[in-house]
Amino acid sequence: MSLSGLLMRACILGFLLFIPALDASAQTRMTVAEAEALFGNLHGDALAARLRTADFSERVSNARLTQWQSSIADQKTRELLRATADLSAFLPPPASDIPDAAPPDAAAQQAILARARAYTAELRPRLPNFTAQRTTTHYELASRDQLEQEERSMQLAHMTRARIGYTSLGAWSHDQHWFKLGISWSTVTYTGGQETRSAESSSSRQLPLSEHGLSSSGEFGSILSLLDRDAAHGSIAWHHWENGPRGLLAVFRCSVPKDQSHFEVEIPGTLLGMSPSGRTPPYQCEIAVDPTDGSIFRIAMRVDEDPDQAVITGVVVEYAPVTIGGRVFVCPVHSVGVYSTREATGKHSSPSQYHRFINDVTFTQYHLFGSESRIIPDTPTKAQP
């Protein structure tokens, strides 16, 4: 099976924003249970101030996040909570969310993996031709020095001083700030097993200097084929059970070495005519599988290049039952992409910091592709691989 791969791009964005002097603060590690207590005890500005420096130590599920956001009136605080929770997507769930069930024996584990491989191999003929709306909310975590460096780079590249309308969501630490870059929309069309995407429209009213800092693709197929292409050659092992939309999910973890990796991370050459810089790094993979039919409900891939495990580059895709044309299919409903880059922080000899770009993507409005039953070719055609 061919693999088009997952493409993540990090490009330098140009803007210059005035950020007022910030009080020194430090990130506070927070469990899901501690966050639940926080929402019961704090409200308004006090809650926003506490969340501004939160750093979750456990995965916040999308359902739990939606419940939390419903209790918050302030839009910026809701956005800040979303961005912070997105960074937790690569972490293990709370212990209380892990079912107390015995692990399957070795033979049962291999049977589950075999069903998952069969599920991936049969994905193209199983899915109908359809369209869906892709909505992406873009976030960035950066210091003032990094923002100024971006502006200088883009001025050189574009010879312009135009500004982008980024919304500050507050200080995360004494020198880094959360920003909401904006929201963009596109239509995904899936026909003949191939995924295409329309040009994106954006909520920003300012003149865009460049594409947003991170983009990803492959949620409808190529990312799943990594199970065959990469995980089959890496070390894959049982890890735990999780609760899913239809019952228990079997979670496996694997480690893929660089020489077997097809997970593509690319920095496009948008600055000064430079050539694109691409690589296929080693990565850690986690797959949540329905043990009865092999359908995959969650896949997470995290680049394994830095000993500092608090620094994340990777993607998580969550799947759920979706009705298309009166039939139910398992399709992507939510994904999180994170790109972290280490760079110098300005003209002073300050230590390097990690600069993060975050995408929160939702997939909605699934519909059968309207003309699929009306196109009758004169001669038989062979499906393209």
Rank of each mutant, 00 (worst) to 15 (best):
G5R: 07
M8H: 01
P20R: 14
L22F: 03
M30T: 10
T31Y: 03
E34G: 06
L38Q: 09
L42P: 00
F56E: 03
S57K: 08
L65H: 02
L65V: 04
T66M: 01
S71W: 00
I72S: 05
A73P: 03
L81F: 08
R82G: 02
A85L: 02
S88M: 05
A89K: 01
P93Q: 08
P93I: 04
P94K: 09
S96I: 10
A102I: 11
R115Q: 12
A116N: 06
Y119T: 00
A121I: 04
R126V: 00
N129K: 00
Q133M: 08
T137G: 00
S143A: 12
Q146N: 10
A157G: 10
H158K: 15
R163Q: 15
I164W: 09
G165F: 04
Y166T: 09
Y166W: 15
T167G: 08
W172Y: 06
H174K: 13
D175R: 15
S184Q: 15
S184A: 15
W185Q: 12
T191I: 13
G193W: 01
Q194G: 01
A199Q: 13
E200C: 07
R205M: 11
Q206Y: 14
L209Y: 03
L209I: 11
S210E: 12
S216L: 01
A232E: 11
G234K: 00
A237P: 02
W238G: 06
W238F: 13
N243F: 02
P245I: 05
G247E: 10
G247R: 05
V251T: 07
F252I: 05
P257R: 10
K258I: 02
Q260S: 08
H262A: 09
P268Q: 03
L272V: 13
S277P: 00
D290Q: 10
I296W: 05
A300S: 13
D306K: 11
D308H: 13
V311C: 07
G314K: 02
V316A: 05
V317W: 04
T323K: 12
I324N: 04
G326T: 05
S335P: 01
T341I: 11
E343W: 07
E343L: 15
E343P: 01
A344K: 14
G346D: 11
S349I: 09
S350P: 03
P351F: 12
H355M: 05
D360I: 02
F363M: 13
S373Y: 12
P377W: 05
T381N: 07
K382P: 00
P385L: 12
